[in-house]
């Protein structure tokens, strides 16, 4: 690899291409829903974006819970058909997920890319960054992604389909997702920025959506990946991470105990990458497979990102020195002059 290219830069390029393709790619794949690549993408690419190339899997999952399974249970028929269609959606998701595993988060997701750009903007504006969130806070926040998945993606839509909850709660995660606002705004469509007064449920959800988007932008300037930490897609990935072909492997050495650079580099504050000395598989539920831990590991082959059994990125002392130097130089330069 040429000296000026590093894994992070490569990842940014992949993210940029993915962002452009997913946000504007209907010119290539086609305009209508059935033209899209999968309708079950393992990343937050939104159907409300009229120019999108594919939809995220959370949309059809909510629809299936609401209109499919919920309605079938109430009607007392068609449950098998509804379950089959849900399994087809999950199956399509898994076919794609197996290829990249959680790297869909770190390399493909448009919302993840946007948050990384916010962090860069914050850093370049000279804003005082929070390198790592306190461990207690990280532990408290972690369950949120599971709650989002269980309640907003599966629970409420199913209850709406059963008639127990209001029909307005048929797709609650889509109603609050920041990617809906972001990707539609990126195409010049401001119709997704609204406060809905038609019902109390829609009002509450639209209020949460707007506040959450504002919070994400504010916090994204100061610390890394604020929304990713509570994203239900991250939780869904975590359920199936064992079957993905991309792995994160640790061959711990005694020096690891005193080091901890991997955890410091991690944008999701996964301390366990450093503290876990027993397991080889260190692909934790919060991991987005960004590869920064591997980049910033100073010991040869201690951390590796593998595709099946083939190492694709391995920790290397020479690379670490170069990478550390370029990171320090990058962080010194701001728009206000050198620090």
């Amino acid at each position: 690899m040429p000296k000026y290219i590093n894994t992070s830069l490569l990842r940014k390029l992949v993210q940029l291409v993915s962002f452009l393709f997913l946000v504007y790619g209907s010119v290539i794949v086609g305009f209508y829903s059935v033209d899209k690549i999968s309708n079950a993408l393992p990343a937050l690419s939104c159907a409300y974006d009229m120019q999108t190339a594919d939809y995220c899997t959370l949309i059809p999952l909510q629809h299936r819970m609401n209109h499919g399974i919920g309605n079938a249970i109430v009607a007392g028929s068609g449950l098998l058909t509804a379950l089959m269609s849900t399994l087809i959606i999950l199956g399509t998701f898994l076919v794609m997920f197996v290829v990249l595993n959680k790297a869909f988060c770190g390399w493909i997701c448009p919302l993840g890319f946007f948050q990384e750009i916010l962090t860069i903007i914050g850093q370049k504006l000279g804003l005082q960054r929070i390198e790592s969130l306190p461990e207690k806070l990280v532990q408290r926040v972690r369950p949120f992604k599971w709650l989002m998945l269980a309640i907003l993606v599966f629970g409420l839509p199913l209850l709406a389909g059963l008639g127990v909850a209001s029909n307005d709660l048929g797709s609650p995660f889509c109603r609050i997702c920041p990617s809906r606002i972001l990707t539609s705004m990126m195409t010049g469509d401001t119709t997704q920025v609204y406060l809905d007064t038609s019902s109390s449920a829609y009002f509450f959800l639209s209020l949460i959506a707007n506040l959450l988007f504002g919070l994400m932008v504010a916090w994204g300037l100061f610390f890394r990946q604020p929304f990713c930490r509570i994203c239900p897609m991250l939780a869904l990935h975590a359920v199936f991470k064992k079957i993905g072909l991309v792995r994160l492997v640790k061959n711990a050495k005694p020096r690891c105990e005193k080091c901890g650079l991997c955890a410091k580099a991690c944008p999701m504050d996964i301390k366990e990458i450093h503290t876990d000395m027993t397991h080889k598989d260190v692909l934790f539920p919060d991991c987005t497979l960004c590869g920064r831990c591997v980049e910033f590991c100073p010991d040869k082959d201690v951390l590796q990102m593998k595709y099946a059994f083939i190492p694709i990125i391995s920790a290397d002392p020479q690379y670490f020195k170069r990478r550390k130097k370029s990171q320090t130089q990058w962080e010194k330069k701001t728009l206000l002059g050198k620090k």
Binding site: T190, Y194, L195, T197, S198, L211, V217, A218
Partner: peptide
Amino acid sequence: NPSHWQSRTAGGVTIVIGFIGGLLVL
């Protein structure tokens, strides 16, 4: 048109409130 019950102005304002709120919390 849903603009009869969806206010874009209020939507924009609440995003700004979220942004400012985020800065204040930090």
